[in-house]
Design a protein around this nucleic acid. Structure first.
Length: 270
DNA sequence: CTTTAAACCTGGTCGC
DNA sequence: TGCGACCAGGTTTAAA
């Protein structure tokens, strides 16, 4: 479900409800996430003040008094703030309770993760080697051009490598490449410096627009308050095989790249 | 070192 | 209606 914009929207939606509050209880209903949820998570969190919620790529980092809870929403996860006594559904695996309200993790496919660490979370093996944040000002044409020089393979797959650039998922990769006028199959090391400038700007603009629109139109995405993701944004190419390009009218094409659906306009993207 | 495929898991959709 | 095949926003891990 979530790429970087959805994770960021979740972060912003949750923070006002719980930053500064103290954890009164933790409920784990299913410990079988991508990694087993630690048996002592409840004991670790109880009584802890929540100082902040940060984001690194698609990971959320909850900063508590004595350590950090690293959460990932995987493919189908969502986090919502709600009344603590609201009945839990089949896929509601984790609650962090602050008096009368709770933050609830729902994740049908259970590709998500909830990991406690007492150390600096940025040194955690899952986070330590993540690539540049695409919204970081250092992410620009020059940076991208230098990075792509040594990368083989289709630009779309390279763009989705979280150890190069973190947060760009399958949908936004297709959308950004369309915006930049670059074909997903183009060899990453063949992109010119100007093309890299267009691509870096396109990635940034696509992500920022999605955040501003409040979560784009992901199928299952729900806001931290439970409202729908807002359907203000429509994809330019994603999921539109056979439909006309909004720029030139050509039929959008689909192909598979690294076992992932990929969409592009054969006329606008070279 | 790089690049690619398999694995994790549930649920929805489509064709027969 | 049922059943199997296939698809879905991610990322690690193992294999080549």
């Amino acid at each position: 479900m979530p790429e970087l914009p959805e994770v960021e929207i979740t972060r912003r939606g949750l923070a006002p409800h719980c930053v500064g509050a103290i954890v009164t209880a933790v409920v784990v209903r299913h410990r079988g996430l991508r990694y087993p949820v630690a048996d002592d998570l409840e004991a670790r969190l109880a009584g802890q003040p929540l100082h902040a919620i940060d984001r690194r790529g698609k990971y959320l980092i909850f900063r508590f008094g004595t350590g950090h809870l690293i959460l990932h929403l995987g493919m189908s996860g969502s986090l919502r703030e709600m009344a603590a006594d609201r009945p839990a559904g089949r896929h509601d695996h984790l609650d962090i309770v602050f008096d009368a309200t709770a933050i609830r993790l729902r994740d049908p496919r259970r590709f998500g993760a909830a990991i406690w660490t007492g150390d600096d979370p940025r040194t955690h093996p899952l986070l330590a080697r993540l690539g540049i944040e695409p919204l970081d000002e250092r992410f620009d044409g020059g940076w991208l051009h230098a990075a792509l020089r040594v990368r083989r393979g289709p630009i779309k797959q390279v763009l989705m490598d979280s150890h190069l650039v973190t947060g760009v998922g399958n949908i936004y990769a297709s959308e950004s490449l369309y915006r930049a006028g670059i074909r997903p199959t183009r060899g990453a090391d063949t992109l010119t410096r100007p093309a890299c400038g267009r691509l870096a700007a396109a990635v940034r603009a696509t992500l920022e627009e999605a955040i501003a629109a409040g979560g784009s139109s992901m199928r299952d995405f729900v806001h931290a308050d439970g409202g729908p993701g807002g359907f203000q944004l429509r994809w330019a190419v994603y999921g539109r095989e056979g439909e006309p390009c909004r720029n030139c009218g050509a039929a959008i094409r689909a192909l598979r790249l690294g076992q992932r659906s990929t969409y592009y306009c054969p006329a606008c993207q070279r």
